[in-house]
Simulated scan of single mutants.
Amino acid sequence: LKVDREKKSQLKYYYGSQWVSIDQELVDYLINNKKLILSNLMRTNISDELFVQTVVWNNNYFKNKVYKFKENYENSNLRYINWNLGRPYTWESKNYDLLKDAIHSGFLFSRKFDSSIDNKVILKLINKR
């Protein structure tokens, strides 16, 4: 249809996982910017993978808060995931210190755990938060 949204938009577009972890402050910001989001992303392809990322990356405060680890984009969305060691890597007890550091760094979630591979790391994190 030759629609060039970027030309008319005040935003630079970004994309990422539709699964994001955000706090109440960002939820409120997104709600307060509903008109901006709708006017720029309504009737777009894969808007569920665009709207949060676009709003966040166009706001330095939220960009620095949500995407803390710019050098390692896979640890974005406040989720701690290791894609280098696996697809994704399944955490084990030997990784406990990394996971503990991730909690203190502000990550809200981590992926991937499997009780049939290593239940001890799960129990340790539950009991030692």
Rank of each mutant, 00 (worst) to 15 (best):
G16F: 02
G16S: 04
S17A: 07
S17V: 05
Q18T: 06
Q18S: 09
Q18C: 05
Q18L: 12
W19P: 03
W19H: 01
V20I: 07
V20Y: 00
V20S: 02
S21E: 10
S21T: 13
S21A: 10
I22N: 01
I22T: 05
I22C: 01
D23A: 10
D23Q: 12
Q24M: 13
Q24I: 15
E25Y: 06
L26A: 06
V27P: 07
V27Q: 10
D28K: 13
D28R: 14
Y29A: 06
Y29M: 03
Y29H: 09
L30D: 09
L30F: 08
N32L: 04
N32I: 02
N33W: 02
K34D: 09
K34W: 05
K35A: 14
K35F: 12
K35I: 14
L36P: 00
L36K: 05
L36M: 06
I37S: 04
I37V: 14
L38K: 14
L38Y: 12
L38W: 12
S39L: 12
N40Y: 14
N40K: 11
N40V: 11
N40S: 14
N40E: 13
N40L: 13
L41A: 14
L41C: 15
M42I: 14
M42D: 13
M42S: 14
M42A: 14
R43P: 11
R43V: 15
R43Y: 15
R43C: 15
R43E: 15
R43S: 15
T44D: 12
T44L: 13
T44H: 14
T44S: 15
N45D: 14
N45Q: 14
N45I: 12
N45K: 15
I46M: 12
I46T: 13
S47N: 11
D48E: 11
D48H: 12
D48F: 10
E49L: 10
L50R: 11
L50D: 09
L50E: 11
L50Y: 10
L50G: 10
F51G: 03
F51P: 03
V52Y: 00
V52G: 04
V52W: 03
Q53E: 08
V55N: 04
V55Q: 05
V56W: 00
V56G: 01
W57Y: 13
N58K: 03
N58Y: 01
N58T: 03
N58C: 07
N59F: 08
N59L: 04
N59P: 05
N59E: 07
Y61L: 06
Y61T: 07
Y61M: 01
K63R: 12
K63P: 11
N64S: 01
N64A: 04
K65R: 08
K65F: 03
K65W: 00
V66Y: 05
Y67S: 04
K68T: 01
K68Y: 03
K68L: 02
K68V: 00
F69N: 09
K70G: 02
K70A: 08
K70L: 08
K70M: 05
K70E: 00
N72Q: 09
Y73L: 08
Y73M: 00
Y73P: 03
Y73Q: 01
E74P: 02
E74V: 04
N75H: 10
N75S: 05
S76F: 06
N77V: 06
N77K: 11
L78H: 00
L78R: 03
R79V: 08
R79G: 07
Y80R: 01
Y80K: 04
Y80T: 06
Y80H: 00
Y80M: 01
Y80L: 04
Y80E: 03
N82T: 07
N82K: 02
N82Q: 04
W83K: 02
